[in-house]
Amino acid sequence: MGNYITRRLFQMVLVLILLSFVCYGLMSLMPGDPLDIMISSNPKITSEDIVRLKAVYGLDQPMYMRYWAWLTDILSGDFGYSRTYKVPTTTILVPRLFNTFVLTMTALILSLMISIPIGIISALKKGSKFDYFTNLLAFAGISIPSFFLAIILIIIFAVWLEWFPAGGTESVGEASLTGMAYAKDRIHYLVLPVVSLMVLQIGTFVRYTRSAMMEVLGQDYIRTARAKGIKQNKIVYLHALKNALIPLITVISISFSFIFSGAIITETIFAYQGVGRLVYDSIMGNDYNVAMIAFIISIAMVLIMNLVADILYAVVDPRISYK
């Protein structure tokens, strides 16, 4: 297992470097540059200004040279400067990554805590009113467009009931909050975006849990366990759930891969300062340093979570082993 993990980690580094080059290249290939767009909208900006700005940003160099300069800077610990915000990349990116992590992680954990028990009960009570109702809500959750749900939530809970703020990450302009008061304030702003994300996730996880559990519950060894008089709870949680976990691990690990990628629609509608919108704007603005760091984190998360999933498969199912 140790050798396997080392080999996978080595492969990950190679894939990361290769994909970083591909991402950098694709960004460079995009037609037009925001600097060129500046000249179209402001008659006072001269072509000499654009030539000078391109030289300052290093955009007058060939793509491979810019990539090499970026890569060596990254490896030496210099994450660069944001061309859009005119601050060091870490200044703008780190708080946004943290905010996105809080939002997506909260939504993911709460979704799993709610959907796994509902999926299990639904599978156990297949064909019941509860099952039909759960299925209906799950399909509704999967189908409802996130922007529509977000606007509905804002109208009901922010405009009409005034229970939660319509947007933002925390109270602004008030005296600095600390400790529990700060946590309470952050939670207040998190509720609507978290609910908006959870609705889709719960729908998805309920469907996966239900189908995985139903498949396992129909297996011969479950029938045998029942015939042997083993208690229902033990059958469900010890024998069935453990075997139903494999497809769930795949879905959950994929979901964990995206915790730093941001939920662009939710973040934009709720004016939540996450990384999703930042990355979009960085790509459109050719802000290479910000966009590339975000790409690297996203790619690394996918690769890491894939490795974690593979390891977990072996933990859950002893028949799976890696050499």
């Binding site: 606007i151 804002i154 405009v159 319509a166 947007g167 933002g168 602004v172």
Partner: peptide, 22 residues
């Protein structure tokens, strides 16, 4: 005495923010 300038990137939710007092 205090001016707070808030970024609300989505034009569609500006009205909701105004109505909710945000």
């Amino acid at each position: 005495q205090k001016i707070i300038l808030k970024l609300i990137p989505n034009t569609g939710t500006l009205e909701a923010n105004l109505r909710s007092g945000n």
